[in-house]
Nucleic acid binder design. Structure first.
Lengths: 201, 201
DNA sequence: GCGTGCCCGTGACATTCGTCATGGCCGGGC
DNA sequence: GCCCGGCCATGACGAATGTCACGGGCACGC
């Protein structure tokens, strides 16, 4: 019996997934959590074999949670399920030792199959997502450029970004400018969109 | 037996919901669809009693779909389930005759209960969402302001917005300016964020 | 009929933004 | 040791943007 931990902040989805997995032979959902902290606590208490994590949790993202789980419970394998299949996340997840990465568009049978694969130490990545990730490649942005672009995401003026990043307004504009040109965007706001789409910020 | 149509573009969620609802007494999922068009076709073929619709479908949103369904199949009641509980959508949905509006954070039992309530002609709105909607109030934007702001959402320059809206650049700037001031934003990009958060665009 | 609000436009102004050139400081690779 | 690339900054210029004042047309309610 594969013992599964489910972490998703959306109650409905979580219990629906539970219902779905419970129909499968050899799979048992032993714990549920709505937040990353809760998931960690549940994992300690129930020592699941596989943790199925939503990418976006209220307190931190599923990838960070997966890293925590690996540290605390090395025997527990992890997989990420998400609505937003951004390539950047996939890369981060794989680098962090996550065993599976699926969009929520896959069918139920695929989910169950991947739980089994991951449990056996295998890896599975949605082919479509993998293709996107390969074609998207690495972020061309430097760490600082990404920082600044992130702060620009809410439409704040340069002045405020500069304060929040502890930089001069001039420097901020330079970074934004170079980021936008690297991303092929006409201005920073378009750049934000491009970077978001690729999962680079 | 309440005959239910399920529309959600995420395969996993859809079949999970199906599994969940199938566990309930007196509820039967008779059709599933991944797009609005597909949902319409399925509704014609299966004449469900209640349609459970995701807010965001690939071709158009769940509220528009609900309106189509009401026109084509007046006997079929509709309810919306969503991850993004923006107040503006709730208002639009209710105005369009939708019987239920739920965030995906509710529990499974609530979902089933709401399906029953809606089937009997009742209405149900998540209390938290309702509170948000009331406090958020109506959009202060005029139709045109909202249009223009929408076009500005992707970071396009004024020039392009003007072309796409068949307006003069000057007029566009006036609209954006007044929209931003109404929303208490320092610039149009911040205004886009505010309007998005409230569900006004 | 008259005010009011939305629609659309013009023109002018100050501010912000995007771009470029330039320079110094660091750390890593050859 | 030297070059390169990332990091941070300055200054300056033109272009885009935000703001304001003002005008006309149109529909609506009173």
């Amino acid at each position: 019996m594969i013992r599964v931990l489910l972490a998703d902040d959306e109650n409905l989805i979580r219990s629906a997934l539970r219902a779905l997995l419970s129909l499968e032979d050899g799979i048992e959902v032993v714990a549920e959590a709505a937040t990353a902290d809760e998931a960690l606590a549940m994992a300690r208490a129930h020592t699941p074999d596989v943790a199925v994590l939503d990418l976006q949790l209220p307190d931190r993202d599923g990838i960070a949670l997966a890293a925590d789980l690996r540290r605390e419970l090395p025997s527990c394998r992890t997989m990420i399920v998400t609505s937003h299949g951004r390539p950047g996340y996939l890369k981060r997840a794989l680098a962090g030792g996550v065993g599976g990465f699926l969009p929520k568009t896959v069918s139920a049978s695929v989910l169950a199959q991947v739980v089994r694969t991951v449990h056996e130490g295998g890896r599975y990545v949605d082919p479509e997502l993998a293709a996107e990730a390969i074609s998207a490649g690495d972020s061309p942005l430097t760490a600082r450029e990404a920082d600044v672009l992130e702060l620009a995401a809410e439409g704040a003026p340069v002045e405020e970004i500069a304060r929040r990043a502890a930089l001069t307004p001039g420097t901020v504009r330079n970074y934004l400018s170079s980021a936008a040109s690297k991303l092929g965007a006409a201005n920073r706001h378009e750049a934000v969109h491009v970077a978001r789409r690729h999962g680079w910020i």
